[in-house]
Design a protein around this nucleic acid. Structure first.
Lengths: 185, 185, 185, 185
DNA sequence: GATGAATGAGATTTCATTCAT
DNA sequence: GATGAATGAAATCTCATTCAT
């Protein structure tokens, strides 16, 4: 990928996260990236297509983060690592979560990305469910949905609602709660 | 409040929820409400001020929904009622949740409503924490944050992420989980 | 004239002088005068007609100021009194001059008041010329035009161009210059 | 400067002079210049910024007109040339004076250009005063203010007040009056 | 006389996108 | 690949004026 194209993506990612998709103008992206409009339209068909490319790479990153490779691990350990990864990112990469959550909530962007959002959610859901499958086969679906809801809810509250959110304590609570899961199969 | 003013608010509420604040034009609001632009600007200083008025009344509604009056109830019963109320609304009034969640996430609207969002969150948090205070004084804060995160996460996933979300089962799970709380004080 | 009508005129005069005719909205006039829009339109056919009424009364005031009644006075004394009157007003009633000068210069208001401006200028010119007629019949016209230009130019420079304009010294200079006129008839 | 940008400035200058700043709409400027609105806003941040650019170039022109370069000239000759220049312009370039005078008087435009008006007035004043300095050092300031007031007053009366203003005779009068100045230093 | 809700035309401004160079 | 002038549609907002009460 050419230097200037990646600069444009970088700039767009930053601005979409900070201002939202609708409030970010092409002009602003070009200025932030120090690139001309003509060039941006040379690389991307439209503003929406920049968003789509960003969402795709953000999905890739998110899957890397969530899919625990080493399936020989015990379920508790897998969950443990997953929680650690997520909270680490949440703390160190706020804009990344910010962007992903607001793309889902903004009706216009949600509609645009509908299919891709569903697909990504499905993959994430199954990778979590697979862990719970090892423990409680019947309830694994509900457990996975609950786990994901907790994570998303914490992110939402941390990033957009409360001030001085006790993120560290919430992580501890999550770790404790999910450490008591015992392999019942 | 005059008939036409309330029609304008109604129209704006609907469109903000369906399309998002940025994507809803004044023209669209006027057309939906069958009202002239001049009138809307006679009653509201700006598009933003419509949003602020809507957020205020939505906060009022949300507090009515969340604050359990009868404090003679046992904590379990209070939580039970709260969960029932919330899931009932979530199922029957999707647009209301849709709107409130996306106002919080959209950077532009979040910035505009920052103060009011914080205040509302504080009230909601304390009304939940008060219930947990009756049970586990030390952990009540974390329990309250967790409860709120679960509710928000479920709403988010139900409304904007998954298709065929098992809302009824999630409610059941919540009811069960919080019914086992015993007054330990 | 009803109390509220005169309050409206007063408010309009103030705002036209401070903001200019175009930048003063009917709404602003009503707010300043504490009077409803309906009432203003009950008394005046339009915004322009308020201006016309204001210009008429301002013309009346200006003529009272300029027409020296006592024609038994010597020309020097008449000019003296005229200069004194004008500089006194210029110092104590800036908004009055401000308004009159900008009505003449603003193309839109000038066009609207064209006829009345010409008529007023004619009267003022003749009342000044009459004084010079007593001294130098042939040059009286040019002297009158010069006198008026000097006054208008000083007002212009004092009100809209220079900071710390030496108004007192300019008055002194005018008094001196025109005191040396001798009756040559 | 691109062709279209300068056409827009030209159109704006003409219309501001003829109709006044407030009464000139962007639409009118675009139509007059045969240019799209988008383009005008590509080159200028706002309608006000067009005015500021016009004022700047008008200042430049005015200074070229007023600053007599050849300082080896006798004061009388300098004044002579200055008066000739000004009256020539006044007669041949009415719109230019029209615009400059009404920008100063219109409260909105005066406020916008305040600083620049003061600066320009200061330069013009000093360039006139410098001439009188050669003749009468003590009174040079008042003489300069008087000279400027006469010029401005004549322009005002010629352009916006009287019909059939005797411009030629007024020039003659000015030439005569200032030809009798003798170097007294 | 008096109110202020209501209108509709038009003002300024924004912005995604195109295109000649 | 690269630029930025140029467009046109649409956005937010203003405002003189009317009218039912």
């Amino acid at each position: 990928m050419s230097d200037k194209k990646s600069k444009a993506i970088e700039a767009a990612t930053k601005l979409f996260a900070e201002l939202g998709f609708e409030k970010t103008s092409m002009t602003a992206i070009c200025k932030e990236a120090n690139v001309s409009k003509g060039l941006v339209y040379h690389h991307f068909k439209s503003k929406e297509s920049i968003l789509i490319e960003i969402f795709a790479s953000s999905t890739k990153k998110m899957l890397e983060l969530s899919l625990i490779q080493d399936s020989s691990l015990e379920p508790q350990e897998e969950l443990n690592e997953l929680i650690n990864n997520i909270f680490h990112q949440l703390d160190n990469n706020k804009l990344f979560f910010q962007l992903n959550l607001n793309l889902m909530f903004q009706p216009s962007t949600n509609a645009l990305l509908k299919e891709k959002i569903l697909k990504r959610a499905d993959i994430l859901f199954n990778s979590v469910k697979r862990i719970f499958d090892k423990v409680e086969l019947e309830k694994s679906e509900i457990l996975a949905y609950t786990f994901i809801a907790e994570i998303d809810g914490i992110a939402l509250n941390y990033l957009s609602v409360f001030e001085n959110y006790p993120l560290a304590k919430m992580k501890e609570e999550m770790i404790n709660k999910y450490s008591s899961i015992t392999n019942k199969k």
